[in-house]
């Protein structure tokens, strides 16, 4: 199998690259690296590339992943070396492996949220003690008030760093921005926030 799993990061400059822009970018980088992509068969061929849990604009990351098929068989090491040279610095290639990663098993993601104003343990505890946490959420059908409490799997704070494990799966995800909006709505003043996605976890909370 010429199937490769690529883990990459997004630094502060790359956090504004949209998913579509990233698709274009990776296509061009693969060409520069002379890594021949396999295309789908059919009327409108497209490269065989799949992503794990696409990320929102405005979040840095250390754990993004995609899977791609090549028409050639090379080692994962060679793949990594060639692609690294062809990528802009703000999108570092962290790891390449041929070992299967089951994207479907992703159930949550760990985030680090740096708040402008420090948030106390007490405030977080009180927030999580609310019977439900209601916030307007954009859905396909429009804006709908949703209870997000069950989507916050874990949350803690140290000074101005909030660590949170949030639901991230095919059946729905909680964006860290929405968590912050909810906290603001419930009276916690965070000020401006920076977001970083650290790692994915499966249903047993094992790191993927």
């Amino acid at each position: 199998m010429n199937k490769y799993f690529v883990k990459y990061g997004k630094d502060h400059r790359a956090q504004y690259i949209s998913h579509l822009d990233f698709l274009r970018t990776i296509g061009r980088a693969m060409r520069r690296a002379q890594l021949p992509l396999e295309y789908s068969q059919g009327f409108n061929p497209h490269p065989l590339i799949t992503f794990a849990a696409p990320i929102s604009v405005g979040i840095k990351s250390e754990c993004e992943m995609f899977c791609v098929r090549l028409t050639e068989d090379i080692t994962a090491e060679e793949f990594k070396e060639r692609l690294t040279d062809a990528m802009p610095d703000c999108l570092p290639i962290l790891e390449v492996t041929k070992d299967e990663i089951e994207f479907k098993s992703i159930n949550s993601a760990d985030y680090e949220i740096e708040t402008e104003k420090p948030v106390s343990d007490e405030l977080i505890n009180a927030f999580m003690a609310e019977p439900q946490i209601l916030i307007d959420k954009k859905t396909k059908k429009g804006i709908k008030e949703t209870d997000i409490k069950a989507d916050i799997f874990d949350i803690s704070v140290q000074d101005n760093i909030i660590s949170a494990t949030l639901k991230t799966s095919d059946s729905g995800s909680l964006k860290p921005m929405l968590l912050i909006s909810a906290m603001n709505k419930y009276g916690i003043d965070t000020g401006f926030c920076r977001y970083l996605r650290l790692r994915f976890r499966d249903t047993d909370k094992n790191v993927i």
């Binding site: 504004y16 822009d21 405005g58 062809a86 990528m87 802009p88 610095d89 401006f192 920076r194």
Partner: peptide, 24 residues
Amino acid sequence: LEKILQKVSKPARYTGGEYGSIQK
């Protein structure tokens, strides 16, 4: 800058860092 980039349309217009851009 980071703060306002979250508010504006197409923030990638202002961040640089593209492949082939020069850093000195």
